[in-house]
């Protein structure tokens, strides 16, 4: 934690998440946290560190390594009136609990004719970082965005992480809060008071007039960096941070494209079948007449995430690759 020159407080992403959870647990007695190593270790990523001392083992609940049980714990507890925050340590472990996610949690309200309410927040980590290799690095958001009944947010900054996490906990639906491991060390301005960001609204992080980059999570930062380079080449680039993938704020995307006439989606997930395809299709359906070229897509190649640092680096999209794709798309 540090004070900036103008008196605003800076916080790391990890501490912003922790502060959000503190806020939630202080204001909502029915909220608790459950997950692998969330108690003693405060999660292997430190986002819950210190909360055990503050709230005790009844509310910061260590679980066995049992992802299906963890989601089931959340579903059953929510159906019985609590507001659980459950943690799936790595997003890759969704494979262990996809029935409870897809067939139980997402559908219970609809299947029961609206007579069940499941206010569950699911925190999890995505992203290739520090050679965690093929089973601890994936960005699998397209899996969960495809399932009606789930909401999905992917905060890119400490500020957004706090605001979206508190919003998720107050939402009466299951909301995934997917964080990128590479973003955890980021610092940024985070107000001390409780605040929420609306789920389903995108954020224009860099206004521009010539070209739109639509991104989210870690790739927002690479996109901003790419936009600076493009600006030097005379392309005034707008960067939109979606913040929320489900629901998707198409209004903001269409308004931007009406202005810039060119757009590209940038994400870390594998490009094939990734969210970029859906977003590009929607923008083309809604704003075809405004587009000068098909909506571009930048994502990881169709490969498992490699181990070796050099290979991992070449797997993950970055500012240079974004600039190269944009240059090609714009015919520069």
């Amino acid at each position: 934690m540090a004070e900036t020159e103008n008196g605003k407080r800076e916080l790391s992403y990890v501490l912003a998440v922790k502060e959000a959870v503190e806020t939630i647990l202080n204001e909502e007695p029915d909220a608790f946290v459950a997950g692998e190593d969330v108690a003693g270790a405060g999660s292997v990523f430190g986002i819950y560190r210190g909360l055990l001392d503050e709230f005790g083992p009844d509310r910061i609940v260590n679980t066995p390594i049992s992802e299906e049980g963890i989601i089931g714990l959340g579903v059953g507890a929510a159906a019985a009136g609590l507001r659980p925050i459950v943690d799936i340590m790595f997003m890759d472990f969704l494979g262990e609990c996809m029935d409870e996610v897809t067939n139980q949690m997402a559908k219970m309200r609809y299947m029961f004719g609206g007579r069940a309410t499941l206010p569950i927040t699911i925190t999890t980590m995505c992203g290739a970082r520090n050679s965690m290799a093929a089973q601890h690095s994936q960005c699998l958001e397209s899996w969960i965005c495809h399932i009606p009944g789930l909401k999905v947010v992917m905060p890119s900054t400490p500020h957004d992480a706090k605001g979206l996490l508190i919003a998720a906990s107050r939402d009466d639906n299951p909301v995934f809060v997917v964080m990128n491991k590479a973003s955890l060390a980021l610092t940024g301005e985070v107000p001390e008071e409780a605040y929420t960001l609306p789920i389903g609204e995108a954020n224009i992080v860099r206004p521009g007039t010539d070209f739109t980059i639509i991104s989210y999570s870690r790739m927002v930062h690479e996109s901003i960096s790419a936009a600076e380079t493009l600006a030097e080449q005379g392309v005034d680039t707008e960067v939109i941070d979606l913040r929320s993938l489900q629901p998707l704020d198409t209004d903001t995307l269409v308004a931007s494209v009406e202005k810039t006439h060119n757009a590209m989606v940038v994400h870390e997930a594998v490009r094939f079948g990734g969210m970029g395809g859906e977003i590009a299709a929607q923008v083309q359906e809604l704003a075809f007449d405004y587009l000068d070229a098909p909506v571009g897509r930048v994502g990881a190649p169709f490969s498992p995430v490699p181990f070796s640092p050099s290979l991992e680096q070449s797997f993950v999209p970055n500012a240079d690759k974004i600039v190269a794709s944009a240059t090609e798309l714009l015919g520069l």
């Binding site: 009844d58 049980g69 089931g72 714990l73 579903v75 059953g76 507890a77 019985a80 009136g81 609590l82």
Partner: peptide
């Protein structure tokens, strides 16, 4: 798993 979660809620409350 859902009953286990409901049981958790009962114990919590």
């Amino acid at each position: 798993p859902i009953a286990m979660g409901a049981g958790f809620a009962n114990k919590y409350k």
